[in-house]
């Protein structure tokens, strides 16, 4: 049996172990978590012959630096236009890379994108919670945060030929995002819906794996109301009484008492997550039927890439 041990020599905030997510526990207050860019996770894993949802390390804009203490293995990096240095060699992201004992690898922010995924040829050893290694930020349950000084152990490590991974055009950051209006649009006047759809908003630094606050005109609901707390989804645009919209992301709370003016179509979530703080974003309304069509097109496009 082979294994590789990687020591984390530097890690930006919000680097964590993630996988395809922990579905099925929303009713118990547990969001799915999982990679912010799920297609990137699937493509990185596919590049190594892993199942698409296998556990990997998600790298934030703060970057990640590793040193191979023991063994050798291949890794794959996908998601965002990050930069990769192995020793003094500059490598692109979106590729399969070989690491040998003593190698030093730095993954850092590049020209575009906010999240990258580092998948491993082998099994990343990390704690499991409810059948998933995805880290839930608030509780720390699951695979856990990746921090400086930590050792990542990969069992059954393998070496594969270095090669690029195709980066689909839809993996780029998405400055115009399709939403379905609602489900609580009745609490907002039509002027607020027009503002949502007719204005450019900006992401703010109030951004983590739970959600991101937007900057733009106030979308305050018509009356200050206390609606009974109700379920929310990844991609819900929730508006508090102050009129500030917040887009809920992978580690979102499962219920909330603020009305949701609109919800991102699922196929837009990966591209939205690749927007950086201060990036501009506009919202475009589609019908529920169109949204279902988008989900099917995206699933087919990803399936074609995963068949290669």
């Amino acid at each position: 049996m082979t294994r590789a041990v990687l020591r984390v020599t530097a890690a930006g905030p919000l680097c964590s172990v993630q996988d395809g997510g922990r579905a099925g526990f929303l009713r118990f207050g547990v969001p799915a978590s999982g990679a912010m860019d799920r297609a990137a996770l699937a493509l990185a894993n596919h590049g190594l012959g892993n199942p698409p949802g296998a556990a990997a390390v998600e790298v934030s804009l703060g970057g990640l630096t590793l040193e191979v203490e023991e063994g050798a293995l291949s890794i794959a990096i996908a998601g965002g236009g990050f930069l990769l240095d192995r020793g003094s060699t500059r490598l692109g992201s979106w590729q399969v890379v070989t690491l040998r004992e003593g190698d030093r690898l730095a993954v850092r922010r590049g020209p575009w994108g906010a999240w990258s995924v580092m998948a491993f040829a082998g099994r990343l050893i990390a704690p499991d919670w409810l059948g998933s290694r995805a880290t839930h930020a608030l509780s720390g349950l699951g695979g856990g945060a990746v921090t400086k000084g930590q050792r990542l152990v990969v069992e059954d490590s393998r070496l594969l030929p270095e090669r690029p991974i195709a980066c689909p055009v839809w993996a780029r950051p998405r400055g115009e995002v399709a939403v379905v209006i609602g489900p609580q649009d009745r609490f907002f006047g039509s002027d607020r819906i027009d503002l949502l759809l007719g204005t450019t908003f900006h992401l703010t630094d109030a951004y983590d794996r739970m959600g991101v606050r937007l900057r733009g005109p106030s979308l305050a609901p018509q009356s200050a109301l206390a609606i009974p707390s109700e379920p929310v989804l990844r991609g819900s645009i929730q508006v508090a009484g102050d009129g500030v919209p917040v887009v809920l992301l992978a580690d979102h709370q499962t219920t909330g008492g603020y009305p949701k003016i609109a919800t991102l179509v699922g196929s837009e979530l990966d591209g939205f997550a690749q927007l950086r703080p201060h990036a501009a974003v506009a919202f475009r309304a589609v019908s529920p039927e169109q949204a279902v069509g988008m989900a099917r097109l995206r699933a087919a496009a990803l399936a074609r890439l995963l068949e290669r």
Binding site: F25, R27, F28, G29, V30, H136, L138, S139, L141, S229, Q253, T254, T255, G256
Partner: peptide
Amino acid sequence: MYGFAPGY
């Protein structure tokens, strides 16, 4: 209902 955080 549950909400806010796991097991709440």
